[in-house]
């Protein structure tokens, strides 16, 4: 019985040792990962560079696409660009009820205004384009 008892305490101690070992290794690993992460984020570009790359390329795409728009459709072009520039609604939706703070009235109003534009812009463009149907 006493022997059993000893083996039990021994194995408990053994287990504890192993656990400590494991936790040490885990801590080590955690340090290493955070090292790797900080290294990689030091290597990653700040967003402004990525953003500028996207921005400049999109300007070129816009330039070439818009020059191909037929002058007869310049009004619908304005309608569409007006509607899609309201994609700003994406930012407003995220800001509407952030986890940190409560309801944001400004973001709510921004969603309303952008939605006026999205619906208004697309509908007025559809009305215009409907008139440009080929007539017999």
């Amino acid at each position: 019985m006493a022997e059993d008892h000893r083996t039990l305490t021994e194995s408990a101690a053994d287990l504890a040792n192993r656990l400590q070992d494991l936790s040490e290794r885990a801590a080590d690993l955690a340090v290493q990962t955070s090292d790797v992460i900080s290294q990689s984020s030091a290597h990653a570009q700040p967003f402004i560079i990525t953003g500028l790359t996207v921005f400049v390329l999109a300007c070129f795409v816009g330039y070439h696409v818009v020059w191909r728009v037929t002058p007869a459709l310049h009004s619908p072009l304005m309608g569409i660009t007006n509607a899609i520039s309201s994609v700003i609604v994406v930012g407003a939706i995220i800001a509407l009820w952030p986890a940190s703070g409560g309801f944001s009235l400004m973001a709510f109003l921004a969603v309303v205004l952008a939605s006026v534009n999205i619906f208004g812009g697309f509908i007025i463009t559809r009305r215009m384009l409907h008139m440009f149907k080929k007539k017999a």
């Binding site: 967003f47 402004i48 990525t50 953003g51 996207v54 921005f55 400049v56 999109a58 300007c59 795409v61 816009g62 330039y63 696409v65 818009v66 072009l77 660009t81 007006n82 899609i84 520039s85 994609v87 700003i88 994406v90 930012g91 995220i94």
Partner: peptide, 18 residues
């Protein structure tokens, strides 16, 4: 740019150049 959102940047650039 502020919100780190590429879609807004692409669309803004398209509309701006248009």
């Amino acid at each position: 740019f502020t919100l780190h959102n590429n879609l807004l940047i692409i669309t803004g650039a398209l509309v701006g150049s248009s």
